[in-house]
Protein backbone atom coordinates (compact mmCIF):
# COMPACT_ATOMS: atom_id res chain seq x y z
CA UNK A 1 0.00 0.00 0.00
CA UNK A 2 2.83 2.35 -0.77
CA UNK A 3 0.62 4.82 -2.58
CA UNK A 4 -1.52 5.37 0.50
CA UNK A 5 -0.90 8.88 1.76
CA UNK A 6 -0.40 9.68 5.41
CA UNK A 7 -3.83 9.39 6.99
CA UNK A 8 -4.76 12.87 8.16
CA UNK A 9 -6.32 13.38 11.56
CA UNK A 10 -9.99 12.52 11.21
CA UNK A 11 -12.80 14.11 13.13
CA UNK A 12 -15.20 11.87 15.06
CA UNK A 13 -17.82 12.74 12.48
CA UNK A 14 -15.73 11.25 9.69
CA UNK A 15 -15.08 8.16 11.78
CA UNK A 16 -18.80 7.81 12.38
CA UNK A 17 -19.47 8.11 8.66
CA UNK A 18 -16.92 5.38 8.00
CA UNK A 19 -17.71 2.92 10.80
CA UNK A 20 -21.36 3.88 11.36
CA UNK A 21 -22.84 1.63 8.65
CA UNK A 22 -20.91 -1.37 9.98
CA UNK A 23 -22.06 -0.70 13.55
CA UNK A 24 -25.65 -0.23 12.48
CA UNK A 25 -25.55 -3.49 10.57
CA UNK A 26 -23.99 -5.31 13.54
CA UNK A 27 -26.89 -4.15 15.73
CA UNK A 28 -29.34 -5.35 13.07
CA UNK A 29 -27.74 -8.82 12.91
CA UNK A 30 -27.75 -9.21 16.69
CA UNK A 31 -31.36 -8.11 16.86
CA UNK A 32 -32.59 -10.39 14.09
CA UNK A 33 -30.52 -13.27 15.42
CA UNK A 34 -32.15 -12.95 18.82
CA UNK A 35 -35.55 -13.09 17.18
CA UNK A 36 -35.11 -16.28 15.16
CA UNK A 37 -37.34 -19.06 16.29
CA UNK A 38 -39.72 -16.83 18.13
CA UNK A 39 -43.29 -17.80 17.32
CA UNK A 40 -45.16 -15.36 15.20
CA UNK A 41 -48.76 -14.67 16.00
CA UNK A 42 -50.96 -15.51 13.08
CA UNK A 43 -54.46 -14.92 14.35
CA UNK A 44 -56.19 -12.00 15.97
CA UNK A 45 -57.90 -13.36 19.04
CA UNK A 46 -61.07 -12.16 20.69
CA UNK A 47 -60.48 -9.88 23.66
CA UNK A 48 -62.94 -12.06 25.54
CA UNK A 49 -60.71 -15.14 25.83
CA UNK A 50 -60.69 -16.02 29.54
CA UNK A 51 -63.76 -13.83 30.11
CA UNK A 52 -67.30 -14.99 30.83
CA UNK A 53 -69.60 -15.37 27.85
CA UNK A 54 -71.70 -12.20 27.38
CA UNK A 55 -75.44 -12.51 28.10
CA UNK A 56 -77.17 -14.41 25.29
CA UNK A 57 -80.89 -14.59 24.76
CA UNK A 58 -81.73 -15.55 21.20
CA UNK A 59 -84.99 -16.91 19.75
CA UNK A 60 -84.97 -20.37 18.21
CA UNK A 61 -86.05 -21.76 14.86
CA UNK A 62 -89.76 -22.39 14.23
CA UNK A 63 -90.80 -22.75 17.87
CA UNK A 64 -87.72 -24.73 18.95
CA UNK A 65 -86.01 -23.41 22.07
CA UNK A 66 -83.46 -20.71 21.34
CA UNK A 67 -80.05 -20.11 22.81
CA UNK A 68 -79.69 -18.53 26.25
CA UNK A 69 -76.91 -18.00 28.76
CA UNK A 70 -78.21 -21.00 30.72
CA UNK A 71 -77.10 -23.29 27.88
CA UNK A 72 -73.48 -22.44 28.71
CA UNK A 73 -73.58 -23.26 32.41
CA UNK A 74 -74.19 -26.99 32.18
CA UNK A 75 -70.82 -27.98 33.63
CA UNK A 76 -69.78 -29.47 30.30
CA UNK A 77 -67.63 -27.65 27.73
CA UNK A 78 -69.41 -26.87 24.46
CA UNK A 79 -68.68 -25.40 21.04
CA UNK A 80 -70.48 -22.34 19.71
CA UNK A 81 -70.47 -22.07 15.96
CA UNK A 82 -71.22 -18.67 14.46
CA UNK A 83 -72.61 -19.26 10.97
CA UNK A 84 -75.06 -18.06 8.32
CA UNK A 85 -76.97 -19.63 5.46
CA UNK A 86 -75.40 -17.15 3.02
CA UNK A 87 -71.87 -18.07 4.01
CA UNK A 88 -70.15 -20.45 1.60
CA UNK A 89 -67.32 -21.65 3.88
CA UNK A 90 -70.03 -22.57 6.43
CA UNK A 91 -71.12 -25.29 4.02
CA UNK A 92 -67.55 -26.48 3.74
CA UNK A 93 -67.22 -27.02 7.49
CA UNK A 94 -70.55 -28.87 7.85
CA UNK A 95 -69.02 -32.40 7.63
CA UNK A 96 -66.46 -31.46 10.29
CA UNK A 97 -69.19 -30.21 12.63
CA UNK A 98 -71.09 -33.46 12.03
CA UNK A 99 -67.96 -35.43 12.93
CA UNK A 100 -67.51 -33.43 16.14
CA UNK A 101 -71.14 -34.14 17.07
CA UNK A 102 -70.61 -37.81 16.35
CA UNK A 103 -67.65 -37.72 18.74
CA UNK A 104 -70.01 -36.60 21.49
CA UNK A 105 -69.38 -32.88 21.41
CA UNK A 106 -72.25 -30.48 22.08
CA UNK A 107 -72.35 -27.83 19.37
CA UNK A 108 -74.59 -24.79 19.61
CA UNK A 109 -75.15 -22.52 16.64
CA UNK A 110 -75.67 -18.79 16.26
CA UNK A 111 -77.12 -17.88 12.86
CA UNK A 112 -76.08 -14.34 12.06
CA UNK A 113 -78.18 -11.83 10.10
CA UNK A 114 -80.30 -14.56 8.63
CA UNK A 115 -83.95 -15.34 7.85
CA UNK A 116 -85.45 -18.34 9.76
CA UNK A 117 -86.56 -20.03 6.50
CA UNK A 118 -83.09 -19.72 4.99
CA UNK A 119 -81.51 -21.17 8.13
CA UNK A 120 -83.94 -24.09 8.12
CA UNK A 121 -83.20 -24.77 4.44
CA UNK A 122 -79.47 -24.53 5.09
CA UNK A 123 -79.67 -27.05 7.95
CA UNK A 124 -81.80 -29.36 5.84
CA UNK A 125 -79.29 -29.33 2.98
CA UNK A 126 -76.08 -29.48 4.98
CA UNK A 127 -77.21 -31.42 8.03
CA UNK A 128 -77.95 -30.08 11.50
CA UNK A 129 -75.15 -30.70 13.99
CA UNK A 130 -76.55 -28.24 16.52
CA UNK A 131 -78.10 -28.99 19.89
CA UNK A 132 -79.48 -25.45 20.04
CA UNK A 133 -79.68 -22.80 17.36
CA UNK A 134 -80.15 -19.11 18.19
CA UNK A 135 -81.15 -16.53 15.60
CA UNK A 136 -79.03 -13.40 15.87
CA UNK A 137 -81.01 -11.26 13.44
CA UNK A 138 -79.16 -8.01 14.07
CA UNK A 139 -75.69 -9.48 14.50
CA UNK A 140 -75.52 -7.86 17.95
CA UNK A 141 -74.64 -11.07 19.79
CA UNK A 142 -71.90 -11.80 17.27
CA UNK A 143 -70.33 -8.41 18.02
CA UNK A 144 -70.49 -8.84 21.81
CA UNK A 145 -68.77 -12.21 21.35
CA UNK A 146 -65.84 -10.47 19.71
CA UNK A 147 -66.41 -12.29 16.43
CA UNK A 148 -65.84 -10.36 13.22
CA UNK A 149 -66.93 -12.81 10.56
CA UNK A 150 -68.46 -16.17 9.73
CA UNK A 151 -67.74 -18.91 10.31
CA UNK A 152 -66.12 -18.74 13.71
CA UNK A 153 -66.18 -21.32 16.46
CA UNK A 154 -65.72 -20.74 20.20
CA UNK A 155 -64.85 -23.20 22.94
CA UNK A 156 -66.84 -22.38 26.10
CA UNK A 157 -66.07 -24.23 29.33
CA UNK A 158 -68.71 -25.59 31.74
CA UNK A 159 -68.85 -22.35 33.71
CA UNK A 160 -69.52 -20.19 30.68
CA UNK A 161 -65.98 -18.87 30.22
CA UNK A 162 -64.74 -18.39 26.64
CA UNK A 163 -61.59 -20.46 26.28
CA UNK A 164 -60.72 -20.50 22.61
CA UNK A 165 -61.69 -18.84 19.32
CA UNK A 166 -61.29 -20.52 15.95
CA UNK A 167 -61.49 -18.10 13.02
CA UNK A 168 -62.58 -19.39 9.61
CA UNK A 169 -64.02 -22.73 8.60
CA UNK A 170 -63.13 -25.89 10.52
CA UNK A 171 -61.11 -28.07 8.21
CA UNK A 172 -60.48 -31.76 8.84
CA UNK A 173 -57.02 -31.04 10.26
CA UNK A 174 -58.51 -28.70 12.88
CA UNK A 175 -60.63 -31.35 14.60
CA UNK A 176 -57.83 -32.69 16.77
CA UNK A 177 -56.99 -29.15 17.90
CA UNK A 178 -60.59 -28.39 18.84
CA UNK A 179 -60.90 -31.69 20.72
CA UNK A 180 -57.75 -30.82 22.67
CA UNK A 181 -59.12 -27.38 23.52
CA UNK A 182 -62.38 -28.95 24.68
CA UNK A 183 -60.55 -31.46 26.89
CA UNK A 184 -58.46 -28.63 28.31
CA UNK A 185 -61.61 -26.60 29.02
CA UNK A 186 -63.19 -29.60 30.74
CA UNK A 187 -60.44 -29.84 33.35
Amino acid sequence: MTETPETPARSWLTRLAIYGPLLLFAVFVVFVGSQLGRETRVTVTSKLIGQPMPAVNLPGLGGAPGLTSADFKTGKPVLVNVFASWCIPCRVEAPQLARLTAMGVTVNGIAVRDAPDDVAAFLKTNGNPFTRVGLDKTGQTQITLGSSGVPETFVIDGRGIIRYQHIGEIRPEHIALLMAKLTEAGR
Partner: peptide, 10 residues
Protein backbone atom coordinates in the same frame (compact mmCIF):
# COMPACT_ATOMS: atom_id res chain seq x y z
CA UNK B 1 -18.90 -2.75 5.16
CA UNK B 2 -15.69 -3.67 6.98
CA UNK B 3 -13.72 -3.39 3.76
CA UNK B 4 -15.41 -0.07 3.15
CA UNK B 5 -14.50 1.17 6.64
CA UNK B 6 -10.87 0.08 6.23
CA UNK B 7 -10.44 1.45 2.74
CA UNK B 8 -12.68 4.52 2.90
CA UNK B 9 -10.09 6.36 4.97
CA UNK B 10 -7.51 5.72 2.27
Amino acid sequence: LLLYALRAST
